[in-house]
Every structure is written in C-alpha cells, then in structure tokens.
C-alpha cells in the first residue's frame, strides 16, 4: 500500500494513475483530475506555469496521504501525480486516485487529499494572461 506519488514535467498519464491504484481488495476507485481553465477572476488565462520545491512537495504529500490512511483505515491504494512547468488550456495539472472497499470513503478520501494538497504542498502557480503574469494567491 505504498502510495504512488510523483511530480513530473511530462504530460500526466491519467489511465496509468488509475491503474496504479487497482487492487482486488477495492470495490471503488475515485479520482480527481485538475485541469487548466481559460479564466481566473474574470481574466482570460493563456497558460499556467507551475513551480515545485520537489523534495518538500513529496515529503508533504507523503504526510497528507499518511493522514488519509489514519482517517480512513480501509483506504487501500493512493496515487497522486502533479505536473510542473508550463501547461496549456485543458492540460491535466493534477490527478488524485484512491481505491477503497466501498464508495463513500473513496469520495471522502479523494476530496481530503486534493483539499489538503492545495494547503500544504509546495507547488506554486503563475497565471499568464493577455497582459502579464501573476503568482496565484500570493497577496491578500
């Protein structure tokens, strides 16, 4: 049940992430796929640039998944893949996949992992607009 965690500058293979959590002990596989949207706060987004502090991001991601295993002891397999570098509209930025015996825990664990990832994992997003760029969430 070692989680499959990675940060990559290559296109994310969603099918591979889902396959990574496949197990006969699970009756439910749940996934979240985050993609690049064409607008943010009313501004048109052209592309995104993700930067990662890889070693800390993987350490913190490990903590997040460990918390999920504590909260849902029936959790079987977990995969989290986050992209870094330059992404175009529609590209997959993150995939979270979990496998559990039953569906209720799969929804809850998947949401917990993506929500907590956004709070603690050391990845930064710079949005590129028609007229400039901005680091997301940097200022109040």
């Amino acid at each position: 049940m070692t989680p499959h965690l990675s940060i990559t500058d290559q296109s994310i293979d969603v099918a591979a992430a889902l396959a990574a959590v496949q197990t006969d002990a699970a009756g439910a596989v749940n996934s979240f796929i985050g993609t690049v949207r064409n607008q943010s706060g009313g501004r048109r987004v052209r592309r995104l640039h993700y930067e990662s502090y890889d070693s800390m991001a993987l350490t913190q991601l490990g903590h997040v998944v460990a918390q999920a295993y504590e909260k849902w002891p029936m959790l079987q397999e977990v995969a989290v893949v986050h992209r870094k570098g330059t992404l175009n509209l529609g590209d997959v930025a993150v995939v979270v996949a979990v496998a559990t015996p039953h569906r209720a825990e799969s929804f809850a664990a998947c949401q917990f992992i993506i929500d907590t990832l956004k709070q603690v994992v050391t990845i930064w997003k710079r949005e590129e607009y028609e007229d400039g760029t901005e680091w997301v969430a940097a200022h109040p």
Binding site: G34, M56, I114, L117, K118, I123, W124, W135
Partner: peptide
C-alpha cells in the same frame, strides 16, 4: 529540511532552509 518550521526552531549551516510563499498547487 523539507518541513514547515515554527518561529522558535533553531537553524544552522547544515540545514536546508527555504522561504515558502503561499502555495497554489492543484
């Protein structure tokens, strides 16, 4: 050393230290 550190934590030349602005993954 890859962990969020409280204000009172001691630091030295052998530590890997980083400033962490607001994160925005996902």
């Amino acid at each position: 050393n890859n962990e969020y550190a409280p204000a009172e934590q001691a630091i030295g030349p052998n530590d890997e230290i980083a400033l962490i602005p607001p994160v925005a993954g996902g």
